[in-house]
């Protein structure tokens, strides 16, 4: 049977344009403007999703501040610096909750709703996808942490920068911590293969880390973990770094923040950077391999 068909044809200009379209565009894939546009697409969409739901916005931003206010409302006899330590521990938990729950929930939604089937058919950069989601996560995690600190200020908790170097250390430590914990959400989402299960597991990880390490390492006396380990765990280390640089005291033992001794050296920031780099590599590999099905590395 003949299968020749009459097909609609456009102008010569149209056909020439199509021929040009067919040329490989791998060089264009590496266009930094395209990469930034794709990353910003994911960032804006993640923020819009939260913005469009007051319930979700309140849950992820206000939850740690409300938790801190409940804690203070129970009555604390300690000094204002003790409240500051507690607020930082809870604020970090709020940031981790955003990183694990929200980042994971949005990723799981895209997987479960088969949007990655559409993404895979587009010339997208998995690294731009990851970076865009992380940028949104950073904004929301920062907002959650800041809301808790504002609640602390409103209730009389005392904060102060230890020195000018504290500003970059606090910013970098916060950024690295968020990067690490957002990547932790990726294997949880992939292993759960179900949006609801991923939500529960990621929330559980955030709460369990908070409780088992004594307010994320802010109050070691309330943690079953003893010794120096709290200065090396990826949730307790940044919390203790922030406590050291934001709370104006040296009486760490009296306030329940020591032992172990506070992580004061830059080597602890370097360790946190190491965690984040390893996590970033792992996250890129996981997204590239399992969400985009494009091998182990972009």
């Amino acid at each position: 049977m003949s299968t020749e068909t009459q097909t609609g044809r456009g102008s010569d200009a149209d056909l020439e344009r199509n021929r040009q379209d067919r040329e490989p565009t791998r060089d264009r894939d590496r266009d930094p403007r395209r990469w930034l546009a794709q990353a910003s697409a994911f960032t804006r969409r993640s923020l819009q999703e939260v913005h469009n739901s007051w319930l979700l916005l309140g849950w992820v931003i206000a939850f740690p501040a409300i938790m801190y206010l409940f804690f203070v409302a129970q009555g604390t006899d300690g000094p204002a610096t003790a409240d500051a330590i507690i607020s930082i521990g809870i604020g970090v938990m709020g940031a981790l909750f955003v990183c694990l729950y929200l980042f994971g929930d949005q990723l799981a939604g895209d997987l479960e709703d088969r949007r990655y089937a559409a993404y895979r058919s587009m010339p997208l950069s998995p690294a731009a996808d990851l970076a865009g989601r992380m940028a949104a996560g950073l904004v929301l995690a920062t907002a959650a942490f800041a809301a808790t600190i504002l609640a602390g200020v409103a209730t009389g908790a005392e904060y102060s920068l230890r020195g000018p170097e504290s500003i970059p250390i606090v910013v970098v430590a916060g950024l690295l911590t968020c990067v690490f914990w957002m990547v932790v959400a990726i294997p949880i989402v992939l292993a759960a293969d179900n949006e609801s299960v991923a939500e529960w597991v990621s929330s559980l990880v955030a709460v369990a880390a908070f409780i088992l390490t004594g307010f994320n390492g802010a109050l070691p006396a309330q943690s079953p973990i003893e010794g120096e380990l709290l200065n090396y765990l990826p949730n307790a280390l940044p919390t203790r770094l922030l406590v050291y640089h934001l709370v104006p005291t040296e009486n760490w033992t009296e306030l329940g923040a020591a032992p172990p001794a506070m992580p004061t050296g830059l080597e602890f920031v370097a360790l946190l950077a190491g965690y984040a780099i390893v996590a970033l590599v792992a996250g890129t590999v996981l997204l590239n391999r399992y969400a985009y099905d494009r091998g182990w590395w972009p």
């Binding site: 379209d21 067919r22 490989p24 565009t25 264009r28 894939d29 969409r45 819009q48 999703e49 469009n52 739901s53 939604g109 709703d113 088969r114 949007r115 089937a117 559409a118 895979r120 058919s121 587009m122 010339p123 997208l124 099905d293 494009r294």
Partner: peptide, 24 residues
């Protein structure tokens, strides 16, 4: 899999995010 730049793929109920508006 190497020519994602040449196709537009409409997969049923997979493109749009329900929490966003149509314009978003």
């Amino acid at each position: 899999t190497a020519r994602a730049d040449t196709t537009s793929f409409l997969l049923q109920d997979a493109l749009c995010h329900e929490k966003l508006t149509g314009r978003e």
